[in-house]
Design a binder for these strands. Structure first.
Lengths: 331, 331
DNA sequence: TTGAAAGCGCTACCAG
DNA sequence: CTGGTAGCGCTTTCAA
């Protein structure tokens, strides 16, 4: 089923069918109607591959995320998608499951699809990819990795600041034994959070005891991580989690061990996802404005009429401490 | 940047470059190497649109879900994606946010992309779509909607059975005032759950008091729904939620009103998503095997070598009651 | 307002 | 093993 058959059935040329389908208002109404009729009679659906091939441009934006299951990433996706739809763009989402190989595959696929722009919101990062993307000349946004370049923008969240807020708050409450629950991922924002944690620990007076552990991203990973740590005999009074999603698992494990939060142990998350208000107790966390990030990504990728070809920018996002019931004074 | 430029640079024909890129092992090693070198020198990425256009087949499977944020849908997606990747397929995911218009757009886009198969896992359903898809001859799987047809398979979960299990269990525990918390969506599985609830209520002796309410899918919707109901003065001792994700919001609202679960109110979910074990208290729910569903979808869509052109099948999935701590005897 | 025809970049078939 | 070439289905001039 193709344009020609539709054209034949409508008694017009392929060009005219194309005009109708693309809303070029140069077609006589009667002709347009005949075409539309043929289209629906034949259950015709334009081949999008042919369309992009012939048209050149793509009107599609790609987003690659480490873990779309984590609401943090999904919230960014949702906002980006809304903005895109509002401007007639499609969004293609891919997730890597934190696998660097999958990341490479996804990036290549996106380039192969000739997306109009690409958002790479991942923690794992292969350095060569940056160059591959730069060379591809596709407008790209990275999240917390690398530096802005010609076609590459960069959004960076002041994770360090967020962690510092958290630690200072807990420290002021008298906590002296800290744990950091991270997740596996070689580079990027995660380890920035861990680094910030470690450095802050070293700076604080009097020097606290502290440990770091890591497992998968998510409730299950968080649960296993804290379980492993507690099994070593270390008894933190404050547990700082790399993100809210992981913190949910920590809360459960503590609860099942008969440890009360925050009476026995204070717990913090990061991101301020919706679930952080719905878990028990609600999490003290650090707000990262995913919606704002989504909008920023869109702005960086969609060529606003006027901008010739926007250069890559460096965009900084400030986090904000959110106090809830999962934290209290040290025992 | 295209095949020809690569061919020129490598001093071979476009056909040969194509052979190398497609791993047709008929190319001399030295030639292959020269080509690969040219490819990487030029940072060449094959145009996937041209490829599918020329090749005809697509090696891509589409999945449309109502709400990818709800782990129920995401789990199906994850499994499907794993199976697909293992067999060299790509997956294109779209979500509709329960919007029938978006569903139509997504389906059309998928057809336009000429996907090799399409999974439509949604609650909202426009009847004409079924025919549009049937006519498109794309192998399709619907979830709990319509009937199997020529190219259309159907997975149906015995929701009715699941709800009955739940109600009987609660009834046996002496509950006499029930609430059903649903979510908006005109047709399909959701209302099947609600219908099952209503019919079961009418059948049970002695006749219980009951109400149904609905809001969005998700914690926020669940919270608002139960809040609205409680504000009317109705005091259920058992709240049956359309799914676990929504139940999380119900748990929070009850907690904030000082109602203890399960001492004051019993709450049940549906789906048995991972979070149902992580919330407080852990939810009594009904297990729906999302991984099995994911596998079934894949099998129904990917033409296993051997099958000429598998006919649409009707596949039935049995749910299973899972008892946890969110339910107890009526006060 | 409409038609004819030249590509878009790639695969696949036919020769050599 | 390699090259030439005819499409795949659509958009987009250029003419009419």
């Amino acid at each position: 089923m193709n344009l020609d058959e539709v054209a034949k059935r409508a008694g017009v040329s392929a060009a005219t069918v194309s005009r109708v389908l693309n809303n070029l208002n140069v077609v006589r109404d009667s002709t347009r109607e005949r075409v539309m009729r043929a289209v629906s009679d034949l259950n015709y659906h334009p081949n999008l591959h042919a369309r992009s091939l012939a048209g050149g441009k793509s009107r599609t934006i790609g987003m690659i995320a480490s873990n779309l299951e984590n609401p943090f990433f999904f919230d960014i996706f949702r906002t980006l998608e809304q903005d895109c739809h509002a401007s007639g763009y499609e969004v293609l989402a891919a997730h890597t499951g934190y696998s660097p190989e999958q990341l490479i595959r996804s990036v290549r696929t996106m380039i192969g699809r000739r997306v109009a722009g690409l958002a790479v919101i991942v923690s794992e990062m292969a350095p060569d990819l940056m160059e591959e993307l730069e060379l591809s000349r596709i407008p790209t946004v990275f999240y917390d990795v690398g530096l802005a370049k010609h076609h590459i923008s960069n959004i960076r969240v002041q994770y360090r600041r967020g962690i510092e807020h958290l630690v200072e708050h807990l420290h002021a409450l008298g906590h002296k034994r800290f744990a950091f629950v991270g997740h596996h991922s070689l580079l990027g924002p995660t380890s920035e959070r861990e680094q910030a944690f470690i450095e802050t620990m070293r700076r604080v007076e009097p020097a606290p005891e502290w440990r770091t552990v890591a497992d998968q991203d998510g409730p299950e990973g968080g649960r296993r991580a804290i379980a492993g740590l507690l099994d070593t005999g270390f008894q933190p009074t404050a547990v700082i989690c790399v993100n809210d999603y992981t913190a949910i698992g920590v809360l459960r494990e503590l609860r099942e061990r008969g440890l009360s939060v925050p009476a026995d142990v204070s717990v913090t998350g990061f991101d301020n996802i919706q679930l952080s208000e719905y878990c028990f107790p609600p999490l003290t966390t650090v707000h990262i404005p995913r919606d704002r990030i989504g909008h920023l990504v869109f702005e960086a990728l969609a060529p606003k009429s006027g901008d010739a070809e926007s250069e890559g920018r460096e965009i900084v996002v400030e986090p904000e401490l959110i106090l809830r019931q999962s934290v209290s004074k040290a025992i």
